[in-house]
Design a protein around this nucleic acid. Structure first.
Length: 553
RNA sequence: UGGGGUAUAGUGUAACGGUAGCACGACUGACUCUGGAUCAGUUAGUUGGGGUUCGAAUCCCUAUACCCCAGCCA
């Protein structure tokens, strides 16, 4: 059990919150959610679910300059897709603006907040530095009446942006800089995506967040490590207000190898078109992973196994892939698809004959049933499954060698047909009619089983292959003068056209997940239509042959 | 140089004064109509130095390293 669940369990035992558990996920709608957010969602929702508590989805929309409805919509869709349930508790911080305003008036009346006329620049100077104390603002000792009057007029829009702020009167020499009279409100004559033009002052995070949690009756306010320095402020505001006071707990955010997670950088990748959009299958965004073919179960399992801690760490991307394969293996229907087709003619197969072969849909799941796959005298197999001069450990097809065509027949390669340039254009094989279905009655064995499609029945498809978006485990590790963009992998996307897939894929819909036998897991793309099938490679199967090859190289 | 945090195999984590365990990865092998899956096994760790204790990853001292904080962002 992680340290946060231990705290919650202990609180349940002592009755600290009267047996309640109430968590929340509070995204700012200024970007798309990514796998790091999934960690937080799974943590917060998971704790609520496990302890019989409640979970809120709340938009922390206190900065109209950066926030948009588009992000709100995507976040709702992503949290829902991940499986977290908030029932009727979808909230917006901006709906609490009146309560925040009232709270500010209260603090002014207690002499704990004041209107300050210092500019942003001056505020910075008065704050001091990490090692030097700050100085009191000359406006710090205004009377309650004057503060009330000025703050009201700030709210009414009488002053221009940046001309005044409301600050908490705490301690300008505190070693924790966050406590040196932090700004509670700034003037922003900006329309809010939900509140319209009602407000000319907007609350800052430190002031707003505790109030939001307090209003919603949150018990455990779980956030990331960088807010640890802010906890004294979170506590201070709620103590002075004497409002209901949740406990803030911080945990380490997720880092993943070969991945950038900062909103700024993800936004840059999108804006500068290094990727096709927020849902580019190479992006670590939830919508990107979804389009890539990830399942919510796989992401949830990943969030479970990485654990929760207070120290920074970087999780190996291979662990994510492991969780992915694990779930996809159990659930994905198998299908045969030839990505790089090589034509095969079965020379002794009766002219014009077509047979329907029985194929298992998912050997991991008997309930998935079987299907028929058409077989004929002209087929396609994978080019990589044939070698004219096979090295020792290559078990697949080669001249004179017999292999099995999955669910069909044993075939033996008799001839290699080449064009003028010496490239292999076609293979001639013979088949053994006695091996129909894939088993030899005489018990003889073959070392390989190949996937195939019937040339006449196959559907054309485009397949998009992906590699890591970055070439370095840590994309932010760069030489002087370079940026993470210099670590972009130029080969992260390759598009293969002219792939041949079995006819059962005819009616596939976007987001359908498949295993292309022996190739990997694939997901039907949004771009796919009945006339033009398009698949994304989610992740390859573990490939021992590829490993042998790369070792010998 | 101020304050707040954190250090366990290659990676992610557990052990809460009592045999350092699990997972991923890597490597062997078995099995297999997916070179998948499955199964069996191997590999490798408590940041350094002191102390307390019968006994320390755990408690104390000390050193070191890393992360966060000087937005009218969250």
């Amino acid at each position: 059990m992680d340290f946060i669940r231990q705290i919650v369990a202990e609180d349940m035992k002592t009755g600290k919150w009267n047996g309640r558990v109430h968590t929340r996920f509070p995204p700012e709608p200024n970007g798309y959610l990514h796998i790091g957010h999934a960690k937080s969602i799974c943590l917060n929702y998971g704790i609520a679910a496990e302890f019989g508590g409640k979970f809120n989805l709340r938009f922390d929309d206190t900065n109209p300059a950066k926030e948009e409805q588009e992000y709100v919509d995507s976040i709702i869709a992503d949290v829902k897709w991940l499986g977290a349930q908030w029932e009727d508790r979808l909230f917006y911080a901006s709906d609490y603006f009146h309560q925040m305003y009232d709270g500010a008036i209260e603090l002014i009346k207690k002499g704990l907040a004041y209107v300050c006329d210092l500019t942003a620049d001056q505020t910075r100077q008065y704050r001091g530095t990490l090692t030097e104390p700050g100085q009191n603002s000359p406006y710090r000792d205004r009377s309650v009446e004057e503060n009330l009057d000025l703050f009201t007029r700030m709210k009414n829009g009488e002053f221009p942006d940046g001309s005044k702020t409301l600050k908490a009167k705490i301690d300008m020499v505190n070693p924790n800089i966050n406590l040196r009279d932090p700004v509670m409100y700034r003037i922003l004559h900006a329309g809010h995506h939900r509140q319209g033009d009602e407000w000319c002052v907007y609350p800052m995070y430190d002031w707003a967040h505790g109030i939001e949690d307090s209003i919603e009756g949150i018990t455990h306010s779980i956030c990331t490590l960088e807010f640890e320095n802010h906890r004294p402020l979170y506590d201070w505001f709620l103590e002075q207000l004497e409002w209901y006071h949740p406990q803030q707990i911080e945990f380490a955010r997720l880092n993943l190898t070969y991945t950038v997670m900062s909103k700024r950088k993800l936004l840059q990748l999108v804006k500068e078109k290094h990727v096709s959009g927020w849902d580019d299958p190479r992006m670590p965004t939830i919508c990107g992973l979804r389009r890539r073919g990830f399942s919510p179960e796989a992401i949830r399992q990943f969030c479970k196994v990485i654990g929760v801690n207070k120290f920074n760490s970087t999780v190996d991307y291979a662990l994510l892939e492991h969780c992915l394969r694990d779930h996809l293996n159990a659930t994905s229907p198998r299908v045969m698809a030839v990505l790089n087709p090589l034509r095969v003619v079965i020379t002794n197969y009766p002219d014009g004959q077509v047979e329907e072969m029985n194929a298992v849909n998912n050997p991991e799941d008997a309930a998935a049933g079987t299907r028929k796959v058409p077989f004929s005298g002209t087929l396609y197999i994978e080019r990589d499954d044939f070698m004219e001069e096979p090295p020792k450990k290559f078990f697949r097809l080669a001249p004179g060698r017999e292999v099995r065509l999955r669910y069909a027949y044993f075939v033996t390669c008799t001839d290699v047909v080449k064009n003028a340039a010496g490239e292999i254009t076609e293979l001639h094989c013979t088949y053994d009619p006695a091996t129909r279905g894939g088993d030899a009655p005489d018990g003889r064995k073959v070392k390989a089983t190949l996937h195939w499609v019937s040339a006449e029945h196959a559907l054309d498809a485009e397949v998009r292959l992906y590699e890591q978006l970055f070439t370095k485990e840590n994309p932010d590790e760069v030489e002087e003068g370079k940026t993470f963009l210099d670590n972009l992998n130029p080969d992260s996307l390759s598009i293969i056209k002219g792939c041949k897939v079995e006819p059962s894929l005819k009616d596939t819909k976007p987001l359908d997940r498949w295993q292309f036998e022996r190739m990997g897991y694939f997901c039907t793309d949004y771009d796919s239509t009945a006339n033009k099938l398009v698949f994304n490679k989610t992740v390859g199967l573990k490939d021992t042959w590829a490993k042998i090859q790369s070792k010998e190289r």
